[in-house]
């Protein structure tokens, strides 16, 4: 209520309208300011990567590039130094691809079949097994680093990409099983019973009833696993060697290499290249990405 408003209904209504409009304007501005806070690093990364070193030294952090150059991108992709080698990110990008694709597929497949068993073929102890697998998702991986390094050595997989695939599958199945189990648990058990009466077996029911239902959860799981594995650093840095490192490790090496002039534009271009695949997934399938995030925290 405004004190000075004349007591006519028309004016009161219009004042109320004004007040609401102003409130909404403030609300929107606050939301936009927050949006700028989240966008600022991305903006700075992109503009810095398009500037020359000279312009970075003399210009402002948030200014648009006066002269756009893709030189830094070229360097980051094919000639930046990750230590003694200077081949850019390209080989490591392909390492990550070669690592992520099999690891995602295998862990998703195992998660689907495990989730199917735990949700629909309950046997004594199934819940205990599920709880034990679930807890495995939450351990700090530091606690398994040392024995895993030795085990990979014994298996002859030390410092290799198959070794990293193995590690990501082993520590990924907890989550993938959780996703599929929670999805399949809502399928009425009568369905399986009816199929059994009709003579369908374990795999037949999975193949022709459950898999066709599973597209959404497969998308959620694949996105979740891909993001986790692509962005992983701890396993990558612990279990790889020169030549087999994933992209996150190579990026860190480029940024923290101490030789020569610090090329901030190359660092930023490299960071964007490392981020592009997961960003792309997020832009294309954000809905499923969020579902995976919340499914991992709010178990239903």
């Amino acid at each position: 209520m405004t004190n000075f408003a004349p007591a006519s209904t028309f004016n009161a209504g219009s004042a109320g309208k004004w007040r609401r409009a102003i409130l909404r304007l403030i609300l929107l501005s606050v939301l936009v300011i927050f949006a700028l806070f989240y966008l600022m690093p991305l903006f700075v990364m992109v503009t810095t990567s398009l500037k020359s070193l000279e312009e970075i030294r003399t210009g402002s952090l948030v200014a648009l590039p006066r002269e756009v150059t893709f030189e830094a991108w070229r360097t980051a992709w094919s000639s930046a130094c990750t230590g003694i080698q200077c081949e850019g990110l390209r080989p490591y990008f392909w390492n990550s691809v070669q690592l992520a694709i099999p690891a995602v597929l295998i862990s998703t497949l195992l998660g689907a079949i495990n989730g199917y068993v735990i949700a629909q073929w309950k046997f004594r102890g199934a819940n205990l097994i599920f709880s034990l697998m679930l807890f495995g998702c939450f351990i700090p991986f530091q606690v398994v680093l040392l024995p895993m390094a030795r085990t990979l050595g014994l298996m002859g997989l030390a410092g290799s990409i198959p070794g990293l695939i193995f590690v990501h599958v082993v520590y990924g199945i907890g989550f993938t099983t959780l996703f599929f189990r929670n999805y399949y648990v809502s399928v009425p058990s009568e369905l399986v019973k009816a199929a059994k009466v009709d003579g369908a077996g374990f795999f037949r029911i999975f193949w022709s009833i459950f898999l066709p239902l599973s597209l959404p959860i497969i998308v959620v799981t694949v996105i979740w696993q891909f993001t986790q594995i692509w962005n992983d650093f701890l396993f990558g840095v612990s279990f790889s060697q020169a030549g087999t490192q994933p992209i996150t490790v190579a990026l860190n090496n480029i940024v923290n290499s101490t030789t020569g002039v610090k090329e901030y534009n190359v660092d930023m271009a490299a960071a964007i290249i490392a981020a592009l695949p997961t960003l792309l997934v997020y832009v294309v399938a954000g809905k499923y990405f969020i579902r995976g995030l919340t499914a991992g925290s709010v178990k239903g």
């Binding site: 939301l31 927050f34 949006a35 989240y38 966008l39 600022m40 690093p41 991305l42 700075v44 990364m45 810095t48 970075i56 030294r57 952090l61 993001t227 692509w230 962005n231 992983d232 650093f233 996150t248 990026l251 860190n252 940024v255 901030y264 660092d267 930023m268 490299a270 960071a271 964007i272 490392a274 981020a275 997961t278 960003l279 997934v281 997020y282 832009v283 954000g286 990405f289 969020i290 995030l293």
Partner: peptide
């Protein structure tokens, strides 16, 4: 807006660290 607020979650912490290291660079940030 939601898409904007949430995209950092899709990035690797290495990317986040690299970006903020540059932004908070005392000489040029």
């Amino acid at each position: 807006l939601r898409t904007i607020y949430l995209y950092p979650m899709a990035l690797s912490m290495i990317v986040t660290g690299t970006a903020w290291k540059w932004i908070m660079n005392p000489g040029l940030g």
